[in-house]
Nucleic acid binder design. Structure first.
Lengths: 230, 230
DNA sequence: GAGTGGTCTAGACCACTGG
DNA sequence: CAGTGGTCTAGACCACTCC
């Protein structure tokens, strides 16, 4: 209720675009019009527009107007949207099979990544990721239990982990760091992913952070050698 | 000579930091001081500061001041700096063995990536990348010949391709897109990289763009399964 | 308290597109 | 020409930190 005006304005515009009120290619109201409409000064509007320009949400033509850009470049979106949205964006029909979902004690490396105590209770989730009926990846997630009590009550085959985070627990993923390596598949992975040995896999380890830079999830995924966009 | 004030101010500050006039951790002059010093208004200074904050060049502590940030996060720098700088940053001693360096005609896929005609003359460069005497990657580069006539005269074992680009041809790499997959090594790759078969490799394909979004290089690298940071 | 970063206003001017 | 995006000013206020 007390966030700066420009953030509210920005969220208003983003929401309007997300709702489809402004379609890609549409012209937005002029900057002067936005000033009157929201009762703010030109500079404040400019600040918002500037950020939207940087994020490639809109583009501008001098002397003409502001236009809504095409849906974001894959480069920007990449991994913060989660598997389901990522696959959907690429035109695949994503689905998920839950392999394991339980509470465990944090091993050392996991605890360090999540910045919590060793042996602290965490939620462990292992899922098979499927696109168009073809297994794509095996993803293991580790989430501090204190951040999301009752998480295990959800059906992870149907709900996206990131959706649950934001709707149920107010945790908005805002940034992440990852490392990627290449690995040979072991027998279990080969069976799950429907591969013949020997096979090469991408191994991705990713830590996701919320607004306040608090780590909310560590994920370790093995992904089929198929192409992966960054 | 007629670029906006805030760009000049920004370049001034960046230059001062690059010269070491302000060291990482140093406090910058206050925003009000910068106003007087450069004869501009607070908002103009703020705009510059805002961009530097976004680029993580400086960070701010409310009520205290502005401070120069540590050298950029590996996340930001990653691949735009080229192999040599990247390895040096990680503490390895990089070296290079040139496998091939010649002029060829652009095959279809290469031409499309570089936005040139099929069969147009291009420079083809294949290098073995070594860190601490251990082979790390085999990198193939494709560069349009028209962008850099005489490129083959350089000794690529000693000079960084990106250095040559910026110093000799005024081409500053500003952005890139890449795709990454995992692959099994073939016999030649295994021998070059000193691996026993079967072995998993990262395969990275990257297009690098200059200031004007012009493609300047297509690179196809196979990298040892070892860790790779993004 | 004085000084800091951060937000915001109400105007102004410029260069550009269109009718 | 009037309308547009883009830049810029000279103030103002707030919350914060340090003394």
């Amino acid at each position: 209720m007390c966030s700066p005006v420009y953030i509210q304005l920005k969220e208003n515009l983003l929401a309007a675009i997300a709702r489809g009120e402004y379609q890609p290619g549409d012209r937005l109201p002029s900057q002067r019009a936005l000033c009157k409409q929201y009762g703010v000064s030109h500079m404040t509007v400019r600040r918002v527009i500037n950020e939207l320009l940087l994020q490639r949400v809109v583009y501008s033509v001098t002397g003409k107007g502001l236009y809504v850009a095409e849906p974001k470049h894959p480069a920007e979106v990449n991994s913060l949207t989660g598997f389901v949205n990522h696959m959907a964006r690429l035109g695949y029909i994503p689905s998920t099979r839950v392999l394991e979902a339980k509470q465990i004690h944090a091993p050392f490396l996991v605890a360090r990544a999540l910045e919590i105590e060793v042996d602290a209770p965490i939620i462990y989730l292992r899922r098979l990721r499927i696109a168009n009926d073809q297994p794509m990846a095996v993803a293991a997630c580790y989430v501090p239990r204190q951040l999301c009590p009752g998480l295990l009550a959800h059906d992870f085959a149907k709900e996206s982990l990131f959706d649950i985070f934001s709707t149920q627990y107010g945790l908005q993923p805002t940034s992440s760091i990852s490392t990627i390596e290449a690995r040979l598949a072991d027998e279990e992975e080969a069976e799950l992913l429907d591969l013949r040995l020997p096979a090469a896999l991408l191994y991705k380890e990713q830590i996701t952070f919320a607004q306040n830079r608090q780590p909310i999830e560590l994920s370790r995924s093995v992904i089929r050698g198929d192409q992966y966009h960054l």
